[in-house]
Simulated assay, not measured.
Amino acid sequence: MQASVRPRPINPWLYLGIPFVTVVALVLLEWTSLDMDLAELFYDPLAGQFIGRHSYLLETILHDRVKQGVIVLGVLSIIAFALSFLWQRLFSWRRELGCLVLALALSTAFVTPLKQLTQVQCPWSLSQFGGKETYSKLLEPRPATDKPGLCWPGGHAATGFCLFALFFVLRDRKPRLARAALLLAFAAGSVLSVGRMMQGAHFLSHNVWTAVFCWLIGLGSYYLVLYRRRPVEAPAIQRNVA
């Protein structure tokens, strides 16, 4: 029988307030040139390409190998969840493992449909950076093109920020480990985001939007699967009334 775990209270100002403020800031960012200004810092006009465009570290290690590592984590999570129905030592972690599988799946699955829906161009495709496409912000109409963009939100950023799921899975059972997982997810997502910006694959806002989505998915999965759980109390013994 699965041991009961008392959920720790959720502070709505912390868990929802920060994402809300971030979204407001991202909308306001539409009226600035910050995305383009940062992209120009990573572009070498003499070479005619972004400084990390063909970097072995950024492309092979931080892109391919890290992505493969997260895929392995997802597969292991699915296997562990399946084993939790068979192996007694995992019985008590069944809900947490189910929450982890759900959050990881949703945190990576939402990217492609949104890319196809929004059709935002990548920096390396734009005329300002040696490409042929016309720049447009997220909330602006898309210019006519033969090749729609597939760059919003940041897909590789989700490889790091999907690890927010580990924080929510561990927060009730292992608070210290959960905080470490939170730092890991934020650091991994940030490093991968900057790496892709250096390659010209994404603007800053693309990756920040991804972080918000992954956080809300982790929070929603936690609330749906774990937060409503309550300790199982022994039934009261009824006294016989003479």
Results as ranks from 00 to 15, higher is better:
1 M>H: 06
3 A>I: 03
3 A>R: 14
5 V>Q: 07
6 R>I: 07
6 R>E: 07
8 R>N: 03
8 R>D: 08
9 P>K: 06
10 I>E: 00
15 Y>G: 00
15 Y>S: 09
16 L>I: 08
18 I>M: 00
19 P>A: 02
21 V>W: 05
23 V>Y: 01
31 W>N: 09
31 W>E: 07
32 T>M: 05
37 D>H: 09
40 E>L: 10
43 Y>V: 01
45 P>N: 09
45 P>E: 07
46 L>I: 10
47 A>P: 04
48 G>V: 06
53 R>D: 01
54 H>Q: 10
54 H>K: 07
55 S>W: 01
57 L>F: 13
59 E>Q: 14
60 T>I: 10
61 I>N: 00
61 I>G: 02
66 V>C: 04
67 K>R: 10
67 K>L: 13
69 G>C: 11
69 G>N: 08
70 V>P: 03
75 V>E: 06
76 L>Q: 05
76 L>K: 09
76 L>M: 12
77 S>F: 11
78 I>M: 15
81 F>G: 05
81 F>H: 12
81 F>A: 12
82 A>D: 08
84 S>P: 13
89 R>S: 15
91 F>K: 05
91 F>Y: 13
92 S>R: 09
92 S>T: 11
93 W>A: 11
95 R>P: 02
97 L>R: 09
98 G>W: 05
98 G>T: 12
99 C>H: 01
100 L>V: 02
105 A>C: 07
109 A>N: 08
112 T>D: 07
112 T>P: 00
119 Q>V: 07
120 V>G: 00
121 Q>E: 15
122 C>G: 10
123 P>A: 07
127 S>I: 11
130 G>C: 01
131 G>C: 04
133 E>L: 05
134 T>R: 14
134 T>H: 14
135 Y>K: 08
135 Y>P: 09
135 Y>M: 14
137 K>Q: 14
137 K>I: 05
139 L>H: 08
139 L>M: 13
141 P>A: 08
141 P>F: 05
148 P>W: 14
149 G>W: 03
152 W>Y: 13
160 G>W: 08
162 C>D: 08
163 L>Y: 03
169 V>Y: 04
172 D>L: 05
174 K>H: 15
176 R>N: 13
178 A>F: 04
180 A>E: 02
184 L>M: 11
184 L>G: 10
185 A>E: 03
186 F>H: 03
190 S>V: 03
192 L>I: 09
198 M>C: 12
198 M>T: 04
199 Q>M: 13
199 Q>E: 14
200 G>T: 02
203 F>G: 03
207 N>I: 05
207 N>S: 08
213 F>M: 12
213 F>P: 01
215 W>Q: 05
217 I>H: 08
217 I>Q: 04
219 L>P: 09
221 S>M: 03
223 Y>W: 15
226 L>P: 07
229 R>G: 12
234 A>F: 13
235 P>N: 07
237 I>F: 09
238 Q>E: 15
239 R>Q: 13
240 N>G: 09
241 V>E: 11
242 A>P: 14
